[in-house]
Design a protein around this nucleic acid. Structure first.
Lengths: 159, 159
DNA sequence: GGTACATCGTTAGTCGCACTAACGCAACGG
DNA sequence: CCGTTGCGTTAGTGCGACTAACGATGTACC
């Protein structure tokens, strides 16, 4: 092994140091993001999943828990607790579906709707905090890349 | 509010649907990334933390566990197990520091070094899998944005 | 020289999230 | 009818992030 030359050419050989490994950066940034969002939501006595569930209900109207689970990615096991919490706060109602008695239909209440609107503002602020160092154009490109990565990997996992 | 024109000005009003919320995308993509990397490393009987620790040791030479913890971000509580595993496989050695008897000095063995080189290749492949849908230029921009976000938020947290 | 304080490695344990297993019930398809 | 599938629920596992506390050691200050 020849020692001396600090040739720029050998960069291909050098493995990425930890600080630039995409998977690692992703994990670290995601954990910061998670903290920012969770702590922010906590100030409104809410959790990420509350928000996810409420948004899904606003977008698509009342639906069964199973459907809600698919849309939000929350496991149906864990969804039980989320619905419990939301209904305890009066934001959703859970009622058996007369058409298919296996199902519970989850419906957002008007209190839920206005709560969600408060959360919307909060979440928007938090996204802003998260992406603070990026320009608007960079934020968009960044988000689009994330979307493409997600689409790619959720597809290839279903395959 | 003047309605007609699709003025870029009103983007503020519409709350982001879940599928484009940066914090959510980040969490989902990070979890995919984590699975890809963890499963990949498992085929080489390794874990993320093994890799992180070994890379740090290669970059900076032997160091105490506390130092290693700071560099890798692994909590010193959890680092104990990592060092146990690595030393059980013969990749590092743990010896008391004669200069400061509170410390253990962790040193990478030659077996560790060659194991790390195998892992380097594996990791490079996995990053490639992860970033598959992005072009080289996009990957770089993406990674750079992640780096900036991380730097920003780790700073503001120390503040 | 003591004493208060900080650092190190370690053990144990908490918390939240992703995920599995199994159950009883209801619906559907042959 | 009966087997299969979908549903809501409970319980529990595994793991990563993180805290608390400990004994042993080192450092700083008076």
């Amino acid at each position: 092994m020849i020692a001396a030359m600090t040739d720029p050419m050998d960069r291909q050989e050098t493995p990425a140091p930890l600080r630039t490994l995409p998977s690692r950066l992703l994990a670290l940034v995601a954990s910061h993001a998670d903290r920012i969002v969770s702590e922010g939501l906590a100030t409104a006595d809410a959790r990420k999943w509350h928000y996810a569930a409420l948004v899904a209900l606003r977008e698509s109207g009342p639906m069964s828990q199973a459907e809600l689970s698919r849309r939000t990615g929350i496991y149906r096991s864990d969804l039980v607790a989320v619905i419990n919490e939301l209904s305890a706060r009066g934001f959703v109602e859970r009622a058996p579906d007369p058409g298919d008695r296996r199902r519970n239909v989850v419906t957002m209440t008007t209190a839920g709707r206005s709560h969600l609107e408060r959360l919307d503002k909060l979440i928007a602020d938090l996204q802003d905090t998260l992406l603070a160092p990026l320009t608007d154009a960079e934020r968009e490109e960044f988000t689009r890349s994330l979307g493409r990565l997600l689409a790619h990997h959720t597809r290839s996992e279903l395959r």
